[in-house]
């Protein structure tokens, strides 16, 4: 049985796809057979972030409609062993993902993989609810900013009431907070909510803090998950988050202001 992880947020643009790509790749690097599913019907993007956009032939909806088999549709990652991608459909029909269809695909994937990472679309409507419905674990991606934190709290409410685990009365979905686009300088200047502030408001365990980093845009430009960049703080922070997800202890890094030189400090640069 695979573990189903949903990467969700409510708000758009906070880094769900970047995080799905990084965490899925990280799990595969650790030797776990992993598939990342793009649930964003109509707006396929995971393929670009993973750098496999030209290898997409069939998609998630084709598999549900039995127009293609899973093995025809899954894209094996060329860089990372044990990793596959199931691309989203670009159909505009939002009802293309049926609960029965999604469940059947997840069951089939569950036989071949250890981890299924579901990259949720933004919002709290049907698409986002479908991505989280079957989850065992939720990674709530949040930026240290008011609207993102509020939307994350809305999504937590949905995880607790509208998931399969909630409806069946099973043990609740395991919730994790992943704080992204964190800027320690602005936090120290009192211009940005701190890790502790967001933890206190959302009251769920912290999986990791990803610093705001130029490496993230560079990685998506190139179609390489940022976790493969082990020179970048963001890549290392994602590696730590994956280790914690697997139950290992890792101290938080990159959340304090780096020491500046004397002149820079004097001039407030």
């Amino acid at each position: 049985m695979a573990k189903i992880i949903v990467v969700t947020s409510g708000k758009g643009g906070v880094g769900k796809t970047t995080s799905s790509a990084a965490i899925g790749t990280g799990l595969a690097l650790k030797g776990h057979k992993t598939v990342i599913i793009d649930f964003d019907v109509g707006l396929r993007n995971l393929d670009l972030i993973m750098g496999c956009e030209r290898r997409v032939v069939y998609d998630f909806v084709n598999v549900i409609n039995k127009e293609a088999t899973l093995s025809q549709t899954l894209i094996k990652d060329k860089r990372t062993k044990n990793l596959s991608i199931l691309p989203a459909s670009q159909t505009r029909d939002k009802d293309a993902l049926t609960p029965e269809g999604v469940e059947a695909v997840l069951n089939e994937l569950s036989e071949q993989f250890d981890y299924i990472v579901c990259d949720s679309p933004a919002g709290i409507e049907k698409g986002a609810q479908m991505a989280l419905y079957f989850a065992d674990v939720a990674i709530v991606v949040t930026n240290p900013e008011v609207s993102s934190v509020r939307d994350s709290d809305r999504i937590l409410g949905i995880l607790q009431s509208k998931s399969r685990r909630a409806e069946k009365g099973d043990s609740p979905i395991e919730e994790h907070l992943l704080l992204t686009r964190y800027n320690p300088e602005r936090v120290s200047d009192g211009e940005m909510l701190s890790v502790e502030d967001v933890e206190e408001i959302l009251a769920i365990p912290l999986l990791g803090v990803i610093p705001e980093s130029e490496a993230v845009l560079k990685a998506s430009n190139q179609g390489t998950p940022v976790i493969l960049d082990n020179q970048a703080e963001a890549g290392l922070a994602y590696s730590d988050a994956v280790d914690r997800l697997l139950g290992e202890e890792r101290p938080l890094r990159f959340i304090d202001v780096q020491k500046k030189g004397f002149f820079k400090r004097l001039l407030g640069g």
């Binding site: 900013e145 008011v146 009192g190 909510l193 502030d197 408001i201 407030g268």
Partner: peptide, 26 residues
Amino acid sequence: GIFDYFKSKSEPSSASVAKDRLQIIV
């Protein structure tokens, strides 16, 4: 920086305003 010391210190930081507002609405 050195110039920041001339600014008034009485206003609460915008992050703490954000936290207070969020706690109430959430």
